[in-house]
């Protein structure tokens, strides 16, 4: 049995997302140019929640999209499983917008790199920012998040598991120690 430690519970996650929503509003002076895009799948769920909070704070509508980045990955030949590919939905013009990408965990940065590539196929945003619920380090690309829920120093043997009510039936972030994986 893999050892598991819960580091954020339901209330922690709620408070964290509220803070991130405030930071997003604070940092972006032009709310009419703000758009949020979540990365499938849990990033998209978190983006929905942040979106709700941001709209409340701004008291105006903010465009929300979601991205599946399977077609932009650089590891097609290396992956061991057939990925489940979801459709992306970016139903608004991106040109000149500030796009806040939202994902659950930031790790190597390759997913974010792929998401940025995908964004540019939809248009030319003025800038792209990055919000993540957890940053676990071990970056392989020169990327830095703009909004971080929690920094989680981890080893590569560990897995950060983000669970959300909508998909997993519960809200929590756990660090799972994987057996038999070399450090």
């Amino acid at each position: 049995m893999d050892a598991e430690k819960v580091v954020l519970d339901r209330d922690d996650i709620r408070r964290t997302l509220v803070r991130i929503a405030h930071e997003i509003v604070e940092k972006n002076a032009e709310p009419e140019r703000l758009a949020l895009v979540g990365i499938h799948r849990r990033g998209a769920v978190l983006a929905q929640r942040v979106h709700r909070l941001v709209e409340e704070l701004l008291d105006r509508e903010v465009p929300l999209g979601d991205l599946d980045i399977s077609f932009y990955r650089d590891d097609l030949a290396h992956r061991s499983e057939q990925p489940v590919v979801h459709a992306s939905h970016v139903g608004f013009p991106l040109d000149g917008m500030t796009v806040v990408l939202i994902d659950d965990v930031l790790y190597t940065g390759r997913t974010v790199r792929a998401a940025i590539d995908a964004i540019f196929d939809y248009g030319r945003p003025a800038r792209i920012q990055l919000a993540v619920l957890a940053d676990r380090g071990h970056r392989e690309l020169p990327l830095r998040p703009d909004y971080v829920g929690k920094n989680l120093p981890t080893s590569r043997r560990e897995r950060v598991s983000v669970r959300v009510e909508e998909l997993d039936g519960t809200d929590e972030v756990a660090i799972v120690e994987m057996e038999g994986v070399p450090a």
Binding site: Y72, R73, L76, D121
Partner: peptide, 10 residues
């Protein structure tokens, strides 16, 4: 249906 109807998958 995108503006750029191309992905880098292959």
């Amino acid at each position: 249906h995108r503006e750029i109807k191309k992905v880098p998958a292959l």
